[in-house]
Design a protein around this nucleic acid. Structure first.
Lengths: 181, 181
DNA sequence: AACTAACCGGACTCACGTGTCCGGATAGCC
DNA sequence: GGCTATCCGGACACGTGAGTCCGGTTAGTT
């Protein structure tokens, strides 16, 4: 790690295989995928996975970090928009579509203990506050509503294993209605 | 069981202790309570619990059955009300208050595989349909919204361990807003 | 008071998933 | 082509919770 000694070629190749397998499996089936399953799909042994990522959480973060960063950027852009309300209205279906496509990302998003997830939820809270000042949202709306309503609906869509894009789109609209005054 | 032979006094006493302990623990902490914990609180051994209830699910049902029946009755009454919309508006905070008070009941309510829970959700769906005909609800609202929005918000309130009555009351209102057109 | 059938509960098995270890194999260098 | 540091992965240790079993005990009857 620190000494960044040149790692052996097979180690690098296996590392790539592991993260590719994890990316696929997490996206398809969420974070309940077990480490042995990831190892099997990658064609390596369990211990090889744990060598690159000391715990399953590290693996999850490695896979999801980029997606979180992208979502954060979109959120910041929406907050900074001229009309934060319109930006929020456009943002919601976009967010849900991303989460629908990647079950692992959605599951990570709902994991309040995960730092990037908590940060993103806070940002969305700030977006709601900004939107409130620019459009017809409930005056008492805040980050708690994001945590309860937005996260609750997303969690339930996952629990019920809903995959239909139209259904997810519809709930973007329903969530918006819940926030509106 | 079948021969309903007169059970010994100590067996009946232990049975009562077990169900009382289960009722308390489930209400306080939900269904994640383990069977050993129930046994310990009841002051009996594990096997004694399994004698009365062959599986944990049976125990849960035994504890929750009465509450489900009561909720079903209230739901049916609301469906049959003159103004189903007003009945629905009054019903929601009432339902949430019951679930807030009994975490085990709330957890059971969210367990779609549990027959009484599924039946209650269906009934609430019928209530929504009836209310739709009598008041300003979205025309495309139905039982799916109950499953996603109502159950989602309740699940998230539990996940975040929210216990404040005022917060639960507020979300009864927010859910209603989500259903409204 | 003695006897027996029923009950009690500690100890056990089983299943599953995370994380560790060490003997064997192999890549990279000389 | 040989040597060694590094990596590989099957086997293992651990923790948790559900559900079972059997020797000891006690309630209820005669």
């Amino acid at each position: 790690m620190t000494g960044n000694a040149p790692r052996r070629a097979d180690a690098l190749r296996n590392h790539d295989r592991v993260i590719a397998a994890a990316r696929e499996l997490f996206a398809e089936r969420g974070l309940d995928v077990t480490v042995p399953e990831v190892a099997a799909r990658a064609g390596v042994g369990r211990a090889t996975v744990y060598r690159s990522y000391p715990s399953k959480e590290e693996l999850v973060l490695a896979v999801a970090r980029e997606s979180f960063r992208a979502l954060e950027e979109r959120t910041l852009a929406a907050i900074a928009a001229d009309d934060a309300y319109r930006a929020f209205v456009a943002y919601l279906p976009d967010l849900l579509e991303h989460l629908r496509r990647d079950r692992g990302l959605a599951a990570a998003f709902l994991e309040a203990r995960l730092v990037p997830a908590a940060r993103l939820v806070d940002l969305i809270g700030r977006l709601v506050e900004a939107a409130k000042a620019a459009g017809p949202l409930r005056p008492d709306t805040g980050v708690l509503d994001v945590r309860i309503v937005l996260c609750g609906v997303i969690r339930q869509l996952i629990v019920l294993d809903e995959r239909e894009p139209a259904v997810w789109r519809r709930y973007a609209d329903v969530i918006l209605a819940a926030f509106r005054s």
